[in-house]
Design a protein around this nucleic acid. Structure first.
Lengths: 151, 151
DNA sequence: CTGCTTGCAAATCTTTTGCATTGAA
DNA sequence: TTCAATGCAAAAGATTTGCAAGCAG
């Protein structure tokens, strides 16, 4: 998959605007992110290990997060990485508890209104938000029911 | 702080219903959770180290999560633990990026409606959801602005 | 009693740090 | 040329596993 000019440009811009350099390591990591569904850190390490050192992946992912290039998606007790909304439409996720697949859902105006109202009530200045729904996807039958007093 | 009878009862019930034992280790961990604001795993380890072994904390927190007793709250790149909604009113969080404090916000009907609608569209069976807003709280002035092309 | 749980030791895996070298601007 | 960025080595931290002993039911 080729990286679109717009996305690639935005990436270079973001680095340049912060006085940071466009290195092979950063290009390689960014490329993997563009070409992947959300992935775990170790999946990312595996996919980049021939191109760059493990340590550079840590350092650059931390950097990318600060620059708003990547997001972490909470998945149960773990998390996955994906390119941030700056590189696409803002969206949330449906996460299947059984097969682990992640489905995108579009941003909704109700959520934005809610964030605005809540923030005003608390004199809070919102910067980011995350909204994830976990459950069972179409192809995964629901597994053994948990005890009824849990919910 | 004393643990309310209702909460304590629910905890015992939950364990008993799953054929699990009410041990000192589990009681100690639960008590710390009841008496704490959301805390990190290492904070929890510190607060329990005189009462139980580190390994038991890992094992029991994993267990508590399966039983729906604790939740993880995403906080930037990390997470914190808190008693789950089964032991209180369901709520979401405002998380201050600067001071790290976490403020509870009440569940909102708009969000529940949204979850229902989205789930139907995707033939998805929702089980849990998380909604977190990160930003700056009342007492934390906004720090150095990030470059404008990020948002 | 029984076998679920714990605690200890030690293995593993993950993430961070220091420093000399490299290479993007 | 210059200094940000990398790669390597090694430390530090976090999490998991095996197993004998302990204790809740």
């Amino acid at each position: 998959m080729a990286i679109s000019n717009a996305v690639s440009f935005s990436f270079r811009q973001n680095l340049a605007a912060n006085g940071l350099r466009l290195t092979n390591s950063r290009k390689a990591i960014f490329k993997v992110l563009v070409e992947s569904r959300p992935l775990t850190f170790s999946e990312l390490l595996a996919k980049t290990e021939r191109m760059t050192d493990r340590v550079s992946v840590y350092r650059n992912i931390a950097l990318f997060e600060q620059l708003g290039i990547v997001n972490r998606i909470k998945v149960g007790w773990k998390y996955k990485l994906e390119l941030s909304d700056s590189y696409g439409v803002h969206h949330h996720h449906l996460i299947c508890i059984k097969c682990g697949r992640i489905f995108d859902i579009a941003e909704d105006q109700h959520i934005n209104d809610f964030i605005k109202a809540i923030s005003q009530d608390h004199a809070f200045v919102p910067r980011y938000h995350s909204f994830e729904i976990e459950g069972y996807c179409r192809s995964c039958a629901e597994p053994v029911q948990r005890t009824s007093d849990i919910n």
